[in-house]
Simulated scan of single mutants.
Amino acid sequence: MKTTYRGYFTALMAVILLFGCRNFQKEAEVEAQWVPLFNGKDLTGWDIKIRGFELGVNYRNTFRVENGLLKVSYDDYDTFNEEFGHLFYQHPFSSYRLRVEYRFVGDQVPDGPGWALRNNGLMLHSQSAQSMGVDQDFPISLEAQLLGGAPEGERSTMNLCTPGSNVVMQGELREAHCIDSRSKTYRGDGWVTAEVIVYRDSVIHHLVEGDTVLTYSHPVMGGGAISGYDSKVYIEGKPMTSGYIAIQAESHPTEFRKIELMELDPK
Rank of each mutant, 00 (worst) to 15 (best):
184 K>E: 06
239 P>W: 04
113 P>C: 12
69 L>A: 12
108 Q>M: 15
174 R>D: 00
201 D>S: 09
29 E>P: 01
222 G>F: 00
44 T>K: 11
254 T>Q: 04
215 T>D: 11
264 L>R: 11
255 E>R: 01
103 R>G: 00
203 V>K: 15
192 V>G: 02
220 V>I: 15
81 N>H: 08
96 Y>I: 11
168 V>E: 00
230 D>L: 00
95 S>K: 06
235 I>S: 05
185 T>P: 07
227 S>T: 11
99 R>Y: 08
133 G>V: 03
223 G>Y: 05
106 G>C: 02
1 M>N: 13
11 A>K: 04
47 D>E: 15
46 W>A: 03
206 H>L: 13
196 V>M: 12
135 D>P: 01
181 S>N: 13
38 F>T: 09
215 T>S: 08
190 G>P: 03
181 S>W: 06
6 R>A: 14
92 P>M: 03
241 T>W: 01
181 S>Y: 10
260 E>R: 11
91 H>L: 11
182 R>D: 15
228 G>Y: 08
104 F>V: 02
116 A>V: 02
42 D>E: 13
182 R>M: 13
2 K>F: 06
30 V>R: 04
220 V>D: 00
56 G>L: 13
98 L>I: 06
209 E>K: 10
34 W>H: 03
21 C>V: 01
6 R>Q: 14
254 T>I: 05
48 I>C: 08
184 K>P: 04
13 M>G: 05
8 Y>C: 07
128 S>R: 08
225 A>W: 12
166 N>Q: 06
165 S>C: 09
233 V>Y: 01
44 T>M: 14
78 D>M: 03
240 M>S: 05
98 L>P: 11
34 W>D: 08
197 I>L: 13
136 Q>V: 08
214 L>E: 05
95 S>Q: 11
131 S>T: 13
93 F>W: 04
108 Q>G: 09
79 T>G: 02
151 P>I: 11
100 V>E: 02
61 N>G: 12
81 N>Y: 10
231 S>C: 04
180 D>A: 05
126 S>P: 03
13 M>V: 07
26 K>R: 07
104 F>T: 07
257 R>S: 01
252 H>I: 10
218 H>S: 00
246 A>S: 15
21 C>T: 08
81 N>Q: 14
259 I>A: 12
157 T>F: 13
112 G>Y: 09
66 E>I: 10
31 E>W: 01
